[in-house]
């Protein structure tokens, strides 16, 4: 008999009702089965492929966590953003405007099957928000993007398009970089 526990958390800005769940339930299952938020994807189930990545909004700012191996026992009382929570929506819940990261992924045709996309959206968005607080020299952006997205696996191998899209958003957004990354050789 699995022990139960009562949990609540803030998902996409809304606090959930307290819910009685098995204590070893993973955050991904909680999103799918209890909140009907099915955009976050189940991939490897071992925290490696990052298809399940969601943003944890904590004291350190936005950080990505793998929802498939992060338990509700830890998630309890914390705030998360899933892929459903990035775009602006109207009162009926229809998307009115996607984020610059999402728009760049569309413009660059970054994905084909899209299974990995929610994880890439989370990782790129968390990077953009980190750079708002802690900008990097423009010439380092490619490395910083690679480092931030390197763990996300895309079986359609859209990597270059994801990386280029993220780089372009960062270079086009004032305040994320220091200096002009296009000064030399690019």
């Amino acid at each position: 008999m699995t022990a139960m526990m009562t949990v609540f958390m803030t998902i996409n800005g809304t606090e959930t009702e307290p819910l009685e769940v098995p204590e070893d339930l993973m955050l991904l299952e909680f999103l799918h089965e209890y909140l009907n938020l099915t955009g976050t994807r189940y991939g490897c189930g071992q925290g490696v492929c990052r298809a399940c990545a969601v943003i944890h909004d904590g004291p350190m700012g936005a950080r990505v966590v793998p929802a498939c191996v992060t338990g509700v026992a830890w998630a309890h009382g914390r705030a998360f953003r899933t892929v459903e929570g990035h775009a602006d929506r109207d009162e009926e819940g229809n998307v009115t405007a996607v984020t610059p990261v999402q728009q760049a992924f569309l413009d660059h045709f970054s994905f084909q099957c899209s299974y990995c996309t929610p994880g890439f959206v989370a990782a790129a968005q968390a990077l953009v928000e980190r750079l708002e607080v802690d900008p990097v020299p423009a010439e380092d952006v490619e490395n910083v993007v690679l480092e931030a997205l390197n763990e996300n696996i895309c079986r359609c191998t859209g990597y270059v398009r994801y990386l280029e899209a993220t780089r372009d958003v960062i270079l086009a957004t004032p305040g994320l970089t220091i200096g002009d990354g296009r000064a030399e050789g690019s």
């Binding site: 925290g47 498939c68 830890w74």
Partner: peptide, 14 residues
């Protein structure tokens, strides 16, 4: 135990 179930059990098992 709460930390184990929340951060470790996803890979190491409950």
């Amino acid at each position: 135990h709460r930390l184990y179930v929340g951060l470790c059990a996803g890979c190491h098992g409950t």
